[in-house]
Nucleic acid binder design. Structure first.
Lengths: 210, 210
DNA sequence: TAGATTGTTAATCGATTAACAATC
DNA sequence: TAGATTGTTAATCGATTAACAATC
């Protein structure tokens, strides 16, 4: 299967499956069936089998999926078996909170593999200060930093008005995957990946059914 | 149309449409066509018309949609024409950041209508302290506070391990709509609304296509 | 009236579910 | 072998897109 072609909705479920497997205590059964996994993940068993079948014959008929093998397959697909370097762009309240979350949380609860390796903020007052031991730097130096520290994902936590420019600067610096927290649709070239997390939009969604 | 039956994906677009209309300068044209709105929102014109048609005959053939009328219709559907009270449950880094964001941001950029009216944290060290002038309280008093301040949405920003219990406590206190930031699937009764924002899941999704 | 754009129906597309033959 | 569960195909469901008659 061409990986570019895997629908987002399937990738999202793969991440859920991986998390379910990670949460299972290590010394549980060696095998897990699609029915068991589907119950943990909150989807149908057919969906589990269909999703996984996209990536090869991962199970054994009559037995199920070998937990260790499935977990490492999913980890490999989702890059959870390597350290993925992240830059946080915009170190206000939210940027700071996310930085702390990502730098503290990983080794506490769930195995995962994102490392915030760079912080950027346009505000000269902030540059030179640290968050969780990590220096806030001038976006001017982004290209150099991205290359040196192999940054692969940019987390955009600047104000709405600054988000498009921030994303474009990050793109020029070599970042092509973005998690955008600003409440705007970023206009970026099609070979770029953008995922949006928009708290206001979500609150409005909830408010609809009040 | 039965409102319970409106698919989430449509509600989400309604919120986008409303935002697009709010961002348009007030003294622009009185009317907007489905083509114009679709370009602002990044969807197809047919989709705009179909989405809006769910809620009555909102446009005029040959002319388009009256901006003021459409905006107030969408605002009313999404409760953007009233103050919706929100409680933040778990006042760690993320809870603090969101509280500041929601209490500062609203009247600066985009008209919106969510008000954080209560903060809860199990930690007695935190109880009695304030964030943005708002007291952090004992979850014990949640039922009373929810009733008095008409809390309608709960934002869950506690650690993963505490999320299910926090949601259940909030439910008992009378909250039925949740925005959950903890990386777990909350198990709640079907008449409850839950929207999840899961940063780790989204980072894994992005990492897939690296 | 002529031109434009909606509201709506029909066609298409894609994702989910059901069913079962293959096989461990 | 008998029982269980996958991988896969076919059927269903729902959402998106296209097309156009209605109408401003």
């Amino acid at each position: 299967m061409d990986f570019r072609a895997v629908p987002d909705v399937i990738v999202r479920r793969l991440a859920i499956y991986l998390r379910c497997l990670q949460e299972r205590s290590q010394d549980d059964d060696d095998f897990i069936s699609s029915v068991q996994l589907s119950q943990l993940a909150g989807v149908t068993a057919a969906q589990v089998r269909k999703d996984l079948a996209n990536f090869g014959q991962l199970g054994k008929q009559g037995v199920g999926y070998e937990v260790i093998r499935l977990r490492s397959k999913l980890a490999s697909l989702l890059k959870a078996d390597q350290v993925v370097s992240v830059a946080v762009i915009g170190v206000g309240e939210l940027g700071t909170a996310l930085t702390r979350y990502l730098r503290r949380y990983p080794y506490m609860e769930l195995a995962h593999s994102f490392e915030v390796v760079a912080l950027f903020d346009l505000d000269p007052q902030k540059q030179g200060r640290e968050v969780e031991g990590l220096l806030i730097e001038d976006p001017e130096s982004m290209a150099k930093v991205v290359q040196e520290r192999h940054v692969r994902i940019g987390v955009i936590t600047v104000p709405r008005i600054a988000a498009q420019a921030a994303a474009e600067a990050a793109l020029r610096a070599g970042i092509t995957a973005f998690l955008n927290f600003a409440p705007v649709r970023l206009e970026l070239p099609p070979d770029t990946r953008v995922l949006n997390t928009d708290v206001l939009l979500e609150l409005h969604q909830l408010a609809f059914s009040l």
